[in-house]
Design a protein around this nucleic acid. Structure first.
Lengths: 169, 169
DNA sequence: CGCGACTCCTTTGATATCAAAATAATTGAC
DNA sequence: GTCAATTATTTTGATATCAAAGGAGTCGCG
């Protein structure tokens, strides 16, 4: 849908780019979702499995930061993956942080799906030349990086607490 | 997250573009969602309101095709908007197709939110130059169009039905 | 050693999302 | 006029999503 908004040229341009960006993302997601859906997975589940496949066991907090899901959502997604025997929660020294790891079955599923999934993505991007794909990636990266917000500071030694109220806003 | 996939150069390139496209779309959605959320709306609700604002009353089927939501989802989203007094379902000659229209209150809400929403989008895209925004839009459009699938054929005269079974797959 | 501050994850409540099935309405052949 | 085929929307069931609240666990000050 073209924009119907009557604004400044900068606004019309940004709105047009915004709509087309979201549409393209939606289209490629739908175009490439078949392999995942055929395996009985959802995008979110596959995202969790894929992250664990590439990076090894991760705590829910680490997973949430990697794949940009809220803690509450991840609890449910991990619960369902565990129920299906694709991941397992491990115990660790710090019992607040429970790493999630792939089971052998989960690892095998990702190993089997990834090549087809990647082939599907490559096929979906075929309408763009290699140079166009590089340009698209560079622009998306520039935009995404700028909107990332400042990186979280590394964990610092605890501040001494003061008697009156919290130290944070 | 950079790709960790060891594939052909074309695959690595497409995968990189894919990830960055989805990340950028996610980032701009989150960056621009504040105005909508502050008004107590979700992205989907606002999408419905915005489509009705620009295009006038639409049936759920037409809305679904415009904003790419399933019929079942739209029923719920429209139900909630109707409950909140922002849209109304109308009766039509063909009682299967019930157009949805903005109420005066819904129209006023969109009229009030749109300028701020568009300003937010323009601000979010500021990290890209005007030329870069145009290039991004053109590439996304090219990609999105290619993945659209053939447009639905216009409604055609009914085929004569044959006695044995259905004519469609 | 006790306890408050803080971290991490789970639970809760509401909403969104889809596919599939069900229901309601229309259309046209016989 | 009847009825099968078709169209459009709703309902159902399962899952995903978030924000906020709650529970479990850790840490360091006094």
């Amino acid at each position: 849908m073209d924009t119907h908004y009557a604004g400044t040229p900068a606004q019309v341009r940004a709105l047009g780019a915004f709509i087309k960006l979201l549409r393209a993302a939606d289209r490629v997601t739908r175009a490439t979702g078949g392999v995942i859906a055929a395996a009985g997975l959802t995008d979110s589940r596959f995202g969790v499995l894929e992250a664990l496949y590439h990076l090894g066991p991760l705590t829910p907090g680490e997973l949430g930061r990697k794949i940009l899901k809220s803690a509450g959502n991840l609890t449910l997604v991990i619960d369902n993956l565990e129920r299906d025997g694709l991941v397992g929660r491990r115990h660790a020294t710090d019992r607040r942080r429970r790493p999630v790891a792939l089971t052998p079955r989960g690892r095998e599923l990702v190993r089997r799906l990834l090549p087809d999934h990647v082939r599907g993505i490559t096929e979906a991007f075929r309408p763009l030349t290699a140079a166009e794909q590089d340009t698209l990636a560079a622009l998306c990266r520039k935009l995404g990086r700028a909107l990332e917000g400042p990186p979280e500071p590394p964990p610092s030694p605890r501040l001494r607490r003061v008697p009156s109220g919290r130290t944070t806003a």
